[in-house]
Amino acid sequence: MDWFVVTSALALAAMYGLLGIGISLTWSSIGMLNLAHGFTFAAAGYGAWWASKNLMSAPTSGTDALIVALAGILTGVVGGLVVGLVAFLPLHDRPNFPIRSLIATLAISLAGTQIFLLTFGPLNKPLPKIFDPVGKALDMRKFEIGPIEMTWDRAGSIVAATLLCVLVLVWVRMSRRGIQMRAMMQNPEGAALVGVSVRSTGMMVMGICGGMAGLAAVLLSSTFFVNPAAGVQPLAKGLVIALLGGLGSVPGAVIAAILVGFTEALTAKYFGTTTTLFAQYVLVFLVLAVRPRGIGGLLDEVRA
């Protein structure tokens, strides 16, 4: 077994999971397919980059890394709220909301890319690796658990992303707000009758999903770069996962994220990076041909 492939697959799965769950959650709670998720992602990347440029001292310290990560997440939240403000609030009680909001989010991502291009220019912006200070503090770049050798950065990414995913999942299952969200997706009118405001709950969902995209941006952009079109690939990945997992099913999205992560790591190793997206779509075709509602649909049937 090639442990390098496994760890990189897990890292990818964790980060794609953040994106896919965001898209899935948005769809299931407010019925909007958020194609501006990539916009939020890119915005968060730029936010983190700005923070790293203006707020950081020369050698990266632990607090600085935290500031960068927080700046990214915060920009993500703001980005999500902006998308909600433009595409959700004015449209949610109009007829044909799913299609209208899809168009609106598409327009936001189209315009957003150009705005980034005009403000920040076409060049790639680097982000610091935020888990490096931890490794530096411990005076080692890598560590080993049995046969697995990992960089601090990778381990940190996996842990942070998984932690946030689990937190959000638990929160959706357990808390009052979480039950409100599920109530809203099952019967909007009933939800209104028990005092759940579709508007404020929807904005809350948008904010949370934006924050998840923000963390994903901070983690991913340290290996890749931030540029105006940085959101396109993550959006495609997120959509693939949401689709594969069955739109609206969060456990389905988790499984799908792991599947996609492994497919990507394996294809990248054996066939080269250009085939990864191709392989992922083939995977989606195969799953959807058997299960038209994705893995989530399968889970529902097993449960019933």
Partner: peptide, 23 residues
């Protein structure tokens, strides 16, 4: 398939074609 699933699936078709044409 439901509407949104199909939309995303067909979006994937274009992507597959592009990847294939490149290869």
């Amino acid at each position: 398939m439901d509407g949104m699933y199909y939309a995303l699936l067909t979006l994937g078709i274009a992507e597959v074609c592009r990847a294939y044409a490149l290869q």
